[in-house]
Structures are given as structure tokens and as C-alpha cells.
């Protein structure tokens, strides 16, 4: 298990390296010149060169990449900003803020949003999927199946806007979405994020209902489930210990991937509810040609996915003894 984890982590580091290199290359393949943007309206070649020098983009691409990469481990000295201790992700081209600080500042919002909605969609999605599978073919199953079909075809930016209008503006049941740090005021944290959680989890809930139902319908007809019944075990035991155990693997896998993607920023949800998380940051970094910020955000998003992948693999081995030896 330990060697397995070590191997996965080493592989993950290589993948991150490749991703960062790709972002670097792609950034310069794009026709926009960040120095030109920062230079202002009256831009002489001399100022342009100076700006380039200050941004650290005057060097050839491999040298730039090397400086950036070096900064991660040993820190970096800037002419304009002074020393940036390791791990240094550089300074934003746009507002000269340190990238790492900005990301750390935004990350709690994204984590709160992701984890909160994950709790909602796992409870409701998996729960209703279980009910639908148990009541297969009955009215409850049909209701759950149709509701999830409608749910998964909804769009956050429509549901979100409508939900704010209805629950906040008209009925006044829910607070206007905002982010307050949990450590500052847990109550405000909860009430400010409740609406985004619910809206973000609508589509996920629908998908998890469908997935849980189809997985369980399959495992419930497995021979070993019939054997468990033939042994005289109670229906509840058969369901949870055998059928659910078999259905869990694929659900955990998808859940890990979804959580990884959410940790990289729920762009549409953050935009809809005006929350300043990683997703919003990444959109801004792209639209303002802010290379250091973009690299930082991409690395965070990729790391989140890699970390959850390793967790999923470890959990899968716990669930299914057949993959332990492989």
C-alpha cells in the first residue's frame, strides 16, 4: 500500500510538471502579449522592453520556465518585488499580488462550496437512488427517475438566478449568497453558502440518483446477492452488506473525480452567485493574460484531481479485495 501510494505520488508530480509546461507553451502560442497590455496607451519600444524585463518574460521560453520551476523549490528574487520565498508561484501580471497568497485567499471559498454541495448531493443523490432501486418499477422509482432526468438537464446559471429571485428576493427565506470564513462566523458561513450549495448540487444530485439506481439494480440481481438471501440474512443486511458494497466502487470513483473538478473551481456557480473562488480567479487570469496566476490556478486544479484520484484508488482497494493484489 505504501509503495503504491509512493508510486502514485511520483507519477502525479511528473504529470503536474507536464501540465505546467503545456500551459507555458500554450500561453505564448496565444496572440496576446501581456507586456503590451501592461504597457499602457502610449507605449514606446523602450518602455515595452522595460515592462517585459519587469514581468520576467524577456528571456527565451525555456529559461523563463526554468526560473518559474526553480521558484517553486528555492524561491525567486524579483527586481521589482524583492525576494519571493519557496514555494514561489510568482506575482500576478495584472495586480502584482503574490499568486500563492491570492490562491490561498480564494481556496477556502472553493473548498467550502465544494464540500458543502458534496454533502448535499451525496445524501440526496445516493439516498434517492437507493430508494428508487429498492422500489424498482414502482411509483417512487418512476418519480425519482423522471425527477433526476429533469434535474440533470437543468443549468446552474438558470436555476441559480431563478433561485435567488424566488428564495432571496421574493420569499426572503435564504440569505443572499456570500462567503464568510467559517472561523469568523460559522452561522454566516452556512447561511451565505446554503443557496449555492443547493443549486450546485441539483445537477449532481440528479446524476448520482441515476448512477446509484443503475448500479444497485445491477448488483441486486447478482448471484451473490441471491446467495445472501438464501442464507437467511435479513433484507436490510443483504442490501447494505452485499448489494450496496458492490455498487459503491463506481460511485466512489465518480465522486472522487467530481470533487477534484470542484476543488479546481466551480466556475459557473461562482460567477452566478458572485463568489470569489478559484474558478472565478481562473477565468480572470485567462481573460487578462495573467500567466503566473493562470499557472498557479491550473496547478491547484490539477493537484486536486490527482490527489482525489490517489484517494479513490486507495478507497477502491478497501472496498474491493480483488484490486488489492493487482
Amino acid at each position: 500500500m505504501f509503495r503504491f501510494l509512493l508510486r502514485r505520488i511520483a507519477g502525479g508530480a511528473v504529470i503536474l510538471l507536464i501540465i505546467s509546461a503545456i500551459v507555458f507553451v500554450l500561453f505564448y502560442a496565444a496572440p496576446r502579449d501581456p507586456a503590451r497590455l501592461a504597457c499602457g496607451k502610449v507605449c514606446t519600444p523602450e518602455t515595452l522592453a522595460l515592462v517585459k524585463q519587469n514581468l520576467g518574460i524577456a528571456d527565451p521560453l525555456p529559461v523563463q520556465y526554468w526560473h518559474w520551476f526553480e521558484g517553486l523549490f528555492v524561491g525567486r528574487d524579483y527586481a521589482t518585488f524583492g525576494n519571493c520565498p519557496a514555494p514561489c508561484l510568482g506575482y500576478s501580471f495584472r495586480n502584482s499580488e503574490p499568486v500563492l497568497g491570492t490562491i490561498l485567499d480564494r481556496f477556502p471559498t472553493t473548498v467550502s462550496l465544494s464540500l458543502g454541495s458534496a454533502v448535499v448531493f451525496v445524501i440526496f443523490g445516493v439516498g434517492s437512488g437507493m430508494l428508487a432501486a429498492v422500489k424498482q418499477g414502482k411509483a417512487l422509482d418512476k418519480i425519482a427517475s423522471s425527477a433526476s432526468l429533469i434535474g440533470s438537464s437543468l443549468q446552474i446559471y438558470i436555476v441559480g438566478v431563478f433561485a435567488i429571485y424566488l428564495f432571496t428576493d421574493q420569499l426572503g427565506w435564504l440569505d443572499r449568497p456570500s462567503y464568510t470564513p467559517f472561523t469568523e462566523n460559522p452561522g454566516a458561513w452556512f447561511s451565505g453558502l446554503l443557496l449555492p450549495w443547493l443549486v450546485l448540487s441539483v445537477i449532481f444530485t440528479a446524476n448520482y440518483t441515476r448512477m446509484t439506481r443503475s448500479q444497485l439494480v445491477e448488483t441486486l440481481s447478482e448471484d451473490y446477492v441471491r446467495t445472501a438471501r438464501a442464507k437467511g440474512l435479513a433484507a436490510r443486511t443483504v442490501f447494505f452488506r452485499f448489494a450496496w458494497r458492490g455498487a459503491m466502487g463506481p460511485i466512489v470513483t465518480i465522486f472522487g473525480l467530481d470533487l477534484g473538478v470542484l476543488f479546481g473551481g466551480a466556475i459557473i456557480t461562482e460567477k452566478t452567485f458572485n463568489l470569489h473562488g478559484i474558478g472565478e480567479l481562473s477565468v480572470k487570469a485567462v481573460s487578462t493574460s495573467d500567466l503566473p496566476m493562470l499557472l498557479g490556478v491550473v496547478l491547484v486544479a490539477a493537484t486536486a484531481i490527482l490527489v482525489f484520484n490517489v484517494i479513490v484508488d486507495a478507497v477502491y482497494a478497501l472496498i474491493d479485495p480483488r484490486v488489492r493484489l493487482a
Binding site: Y224, T227, A230, R245, G246, R322
Partner: peptide, 26 residues
């Protein structure tokens, strides 16, 4: 169902054809 549960595996038991599929892999 409850009476049957008490009989199954206890008074009456069954051996299935495909033992690999009929035993829980977990």
C-alpha cells in the same frame, strides 16, 4: 418473509451452480 428468513440457510439451504458468482467477492 420473516419466517422464511429463519428457515433459509438454517433448515433449508441451497448450493448454486456458479460458485464464483454466487460467493460475494467482497
Amino acid at each position: 418473509e420473516r419466517e422464511l428468513e429463519r428457515l433459509r440457510g438454517n433448515k433449508m439451504a441451497m448450493i448454486f451452480q456458479d460458485a464464483l458468482a454466487s460467493l460475494s467477492p467482497y
